[in-house]
Nucleic acid binder design. Structure first.
Lengths: 191, 191
DNA sequence: TATTTCATTTGATCCATGTCAAATTTAATT
DNA sequence: AATTAAATTTGACATGGATCAAATGAAATA
C-alpha cells in the first residue's frame, strides 16, 4: 500500500476530505518501514507524533513500580500515539513499541493542528478519530469494571480473534489487568 | 447563571465560537430545572441529547446481572450523555440519573451535527469536548488496570475531594469497580 | 417525635486471582 | 543440530476483596 492509498483509506474510515486537503496531508505524512521491537517513543520524551499503522502492530506501555503494563494495542488501519504527550504536550509516561515488522505513516501534531485550522473537513476527520477512540475506551472501561478475568479474555478474543497469534501473552495479560499466570490458566481448557 | 453565561463558559473551557454560532447554539439549548433522582435517560431509549451541567451532578449507570454499576459521574461544567446512544444511534444501555437538584442545558445531537457542519469553529469545539473526555477516560483506565481498591479511592479523592459529600458511597464503589463493603472498610482509618 | 426506609458499617467466611518458584515448551542464535 | 534465551505452563500457597448476613446510623415521612 502506498501513501495515496493510505490517505484514501483514512478518508473512507473516518470522514471525506477535499482533494486539496488530501494532497497536503499526503505531503506531510512520512512512511516508515520499521522492524519488530523498534521503540517509537520512550518514557519522558515529548512526543508530538501520531502513527497510522498500515501493516503490523504496536503497543503502548508504561512502568508501574518497575512492572511493564500494556495499556494500548493497535493494529492495521488504526492510529497509535503517546496519547498524553500528543494531546497535552506533557512528557510521555508511555513507551510505544512495535510488536511486528511494521509499515507506518507518521504525522506531526503541529501539521495536524495546522490542517485542522485550515480545512473544516480535516477538523471533522480528527473529531471522528478521537470519537472512535473514546468509544473503544468506553468499552474497555466497561470490560474492566466488573468482569472476571475469563470474561475479559473472552471479550478481547471476540473483538480480535487473532490476538494470541500476534501479541505475546504477557502483554495481553497486563492489557486485561490480570497476571500472565492467570491468563495461562484461563486458556487451559481443563479449567 | 443564564444561558448566555453558559455558552460563554463553554467557549472559554473548550474553544472560542463566532458571535453567530454562539447565538445559534443559544437558541437551541434548552434550560432544564430538575429534581434530585430525576431520570434523564432510561435503558433501551434512543437518546440523542447531551446535557451540560450548570449546577448539580449526575451519574450514568447500567445493570449487569441485575446489579447497578455506575460508570460515569459528572458535575458542574461538564457534559453527560448516554455516550453509546448519542454517538452510535444505538439504544442506550445506560440510565442517566440526577444525584442532586440540578440545572442543565440540553442540546440535541441533530442540532450539534448541523452546527458542526455549518461552523468550523463549532466543529473544533466538539472535537475539544471529545478529546477532553477521551483523556479523562484514559486516566480512568490507568487507575483501574493495576491499582488496589485503596489506590483507586485515593485517586478519585485527589481529583474530586468533595465527592463523598455529594455522591452516595454505593455509586462511588461501583464506579471504582469495588464493592460497597470494601469501600467502607478502606475509609475506616483503623485499616 | 415516632416510624419507616435507605445508607453505611462491621463481622465471618470464601474464592478468584495474585505471588513466587520451578518445569516445560518454543523460538532465536551459534 | 546444539545451545541459549525467551515465552508459557504448572504447582503450592497467600491474600485482597467478594459475598452474605446482621447491626448501626442517618434521612425521609407519617
Amino acid at each position: 500500500m502506498n501513501k495515496e492509498e493510505v490517505i484514501k483509506r483514512i478518508c473512507e474510515t473516518y470522514a471525506p476530505l477535499s482533494r486539496a486537503c488530501q494532497q497536503e496531508l499526503l505531503d506531510n505524512g512520512m512512511m516508515l518501514f520499521l522492524e519488530k521491537n523498534h521503540i517509537l517513543v520512550r518514557e519522558g520524551q515529548h512526543s508530538d507524533k501520531t502513527y497510522y499503522i498500515i501493516n503490523g502492530c504496536a503497543r503502548a506501555y508504561y512502568l508501574k513500580d518497575g512492572k511493564d503494563i500494556t495499556d494500548w494495542l493497535a493494529f492495521e488501519n488504526e492510529f497509535i500515539s503517546s496519547i498524553i504527550s500528543f494531546f497535552t504536550h506533557q512528557p510521555s509516561p508511555h513507551y510505544i513499541e512495535l510488536l511486528e515488522d511494521s509499515v507506518l505513516v507518521e504525522f506531526s501534531k503541529s501539521k495536524i493542528d495546522e490542517l485542522a485550522d485550515k480545512y473544516h473537513d480535516f477538523e471533522r476527520l480528527i473529531r471522528m478519530v478521537v470519537t472512535k477512540t473514546m468509544l473503544s475506551q468506553q468499552e474497555k472501561i466497561a470490560s474492566m469494571q466488573f468482569y472476571s478475568a475469563k470474561e475479559k479474555y473472552a471479550n478481547i478474543l471476540a473483538i480480535r480473534p487473532d490476538i494470541t497469534q500476534r501479541v505475546p501473552l504477557t502483554f495481553i495479560a497486563s492489557y486485561l489487568g490480570i497476571t500472565l499466570e492467570t491468563l495461562s490458566r484461563i486458556r487451559n481448557p481443563r479449567n
